[in-house]
Simulated assay, not measured.
Amino acid sequence: MVMRPISYGRQYISQEDIDAVVETLQSDFLTQGPKVKEFEERFAEYVGSKYAIAVSNGTAALHLCTMAMNVQKGDKVITTPLTFAASANCIRYCDGEVDFVDIDPHTYLMDLDKLEEKLASVPVGTYKGVIPVDFAGYPINVERLRSIANKYKLWIIEDACHAPGGYFEDSQKVQQKCGNGAYADLHIFSFHPVKHIATGEGGMITTNNKELYEKICLLRTHGITKDPELLNENHGGWYYEMQELGYNYRLSDIQAALGVSQLERANEGVRKRNEIALKYNEAFKESKITTPFVHDNTLHAYHLYVIQIEDRKGLYNHLRENNIFSQVLYSPVHLQPYYKKFGWKKGDLPVVEKYYENCLALPMFPTLSIDEQNYVIEKIKEFIDE
C-alpha cells in the first residue's frame, strides 16, 4: 500500500476557512479591524475567560506576559525544561534569570513536588513567578500550583499552547478548562499550523484580570493608546499617546478570520484527537512501547501523541523509510548551548534527560485517516517485532 507522506502534525483548511479569509480580503479591513475583536471574544468564550488578546504568535504572547508581570533584570522565574525554547526565552527577553524544575516521569509536566522542594529551600521572594507548560496537551493541575504559588508569592503564566479544549477536574469536581483564568494569572496559546487552531502564525493571551488585560493591550501596539479614558491630555479625535515602550505584536484580520472559522470545529478536533489516541493505546498496550499517561479526571487535548521506546532512533529511521515523519519533541531546554552558558549541564535534570532519550511523537491530527493510522501502527509493529 502506497501512502502519501504522513507527518506528525498537519493543518486542515476547509472551504469554509477559505471563504472566511476571502470575505475579509474583500472587506475594508485587513488589519486592526473587527475580525480580531470577534476572534478574541469567541476564543474567550471557548476557554471560559473574561478577556482574550490576539497577538502575532505564541512567543509574542509569552513576551507580553512577562512584560505585564514586570519581569526585570535579575528576577528569577521557574519553568520546565520540556518545552519549546520560547517558554524560557521570554524570561531572558526581560533580562530575567531562568531556573528549571524537572518533569514528572508519568505526565511529563513540571513536577510540582520538586517545585515545592526548590521553593522551600530558599527565602520566600527569591523567585518571582512560574511558567508551567501543558506539554502535549495534558493540563497541569493549576489548582495545586496556585496553592504553591500563593504560599511562595509567585505569579503564574500557564503556557497552554498544546492544550486548547483540555481540562482537569479540581478538588470541587469542577472542570477547569485550560485558559479559563480560574487559577493562573495569564494563559497563552499558539495558532501555528500544527496546533489545534491554525492561523498561519498567531497567538492568544487569556486572563480574568482587567488590569493585566489593559496593560497587555497597550504593550501589544507600541505602547500606544487612543482611548480617551486613558489619555493624559486630548487634542482631538486624531490624538494618541505612547505611554509605554511596547511592540507591534498584532494579529491581522486575515488571520483572525481564519481563526474564527477554525474555532467552529475546535471541539470536534479535540474529540477526534482523543479517538486517534485511543486507537494507538489499544494497538500498543501489549508491546514494549510506553503510551501517554492520562488521569481519570483529565481531558488530554493531544496536540502530540508521544510514546517512549528504547530504540527511538531506529524506529524514527524505520518510519521515515516508510514515508512516516514522526518527530522528537523536545530536546531539553537546559541542554541547549545558550542555556549551558549559564551553567546547566547533563545530569542536572535526569528525568527529562531520560525522557528525551526515548521519546517519539507519532502522527496526530484530526484529518489522519483510518487507513493512514493503520499504516503507521503496522509499520511500528513491524519494527518492534523484528
Rank of each mutant, 00 (worst) to 15 (best):
H300A: 03
L299E: 05
R271I: 15
P292V: 13
F284Y: 09
R273L: 14
N267F: 13
K288E: 15
K288S: 15
Y305M: 04
Y280I: 05
L258C: 06
Y305G: 07
A257R: 01
A277M: 01
N274C: 10
A257I: 02
A283R: 13
G246W: 02
E244P: 08
A257P: 00
E268K: 09
P292N: 11
S261C: 06
S287A: 11
S261P: 02
Y247L: 00
H300W: 07
G269T: 12
K285I: 08
A277Y: 01
L258A: 09
A283S: 12
V260I: 12
F293M: 07
L245I: 03
Q255H: 09
I309S: 02
H295V: 05
Y280N: 04
L278K: 11
E268L: 12
F293H: 14
E264D: 12
N297S: 14
E244H: 11
Y280W: 07
R250P: 01
Y249K: 02
F293G: 09
T291V: 15
G246N: 02
E282F: 09
D296E: 14
V260K: 02
E264C: 13
L245N: 07
V306T: 09
H300P: 04
K288Q: 14
I276F: 02
L304K: 09
R250Q: 05
H303L: 06
G269V: 09
T291P: 11
L258P: 00
I254R: 00
A283P: 04
K272E: 15
T298N: 12
Y247D: 01
K279H: 06
V270M: 08
A283H: 12
A256E: 01
N281K: 12
Q255L: 03
L299A: 08
Q255M: 08
N267M: 11
S287V: 07
L299W: 03
Y247S: 02
T298H: 10
Y302M: 04
G269H: 13
K272I: 15
I276P: 01
H295D: 14
L304A: 07
H303F: 05
H300T: 04
F284D: 09
V306Y: 02
K288I: 15
T291E: 07
P292S: 10
D296C: 03
L258Q: 04
K288A: 14
A301C: 05
K272F: 14
E264R: 14
E268C: 03
I289H: 12
E264H: 13
L251T: 00
Q243K: 10
A283K: 13
G259Y: 05
V260F: 00
G269C: 12
V306C: 11
I289C: 04
R265G: 01
L258T: 03
R271Y: 15
F284C: 01
Y249L: 00
H303D: 05
Q262C: 10
N297F: 11
Y247T: 00
T290D: 08
Q243L: 03
G259D: 07
Y249C: 01
Q308N: 08
H295G: 14
I254H: 00
N248C: 06
S287C: 10
N281P: 04
V294C: 13
E282N: 13
I309G: 03
N248Y: 13
G246T: 06
Y305N: 09
F284L: 08
L304Y: 08
Y280F: 08
S287T: 14
N267K: 15
T290W: 04
Y247F: 06
Y247C: 02
I276L: 10
K285Q: 05
L278A: 14
L245R: 02
E244A: 11
A256Y: 01
E275K: 07
H295F: 04
L263Y: 05
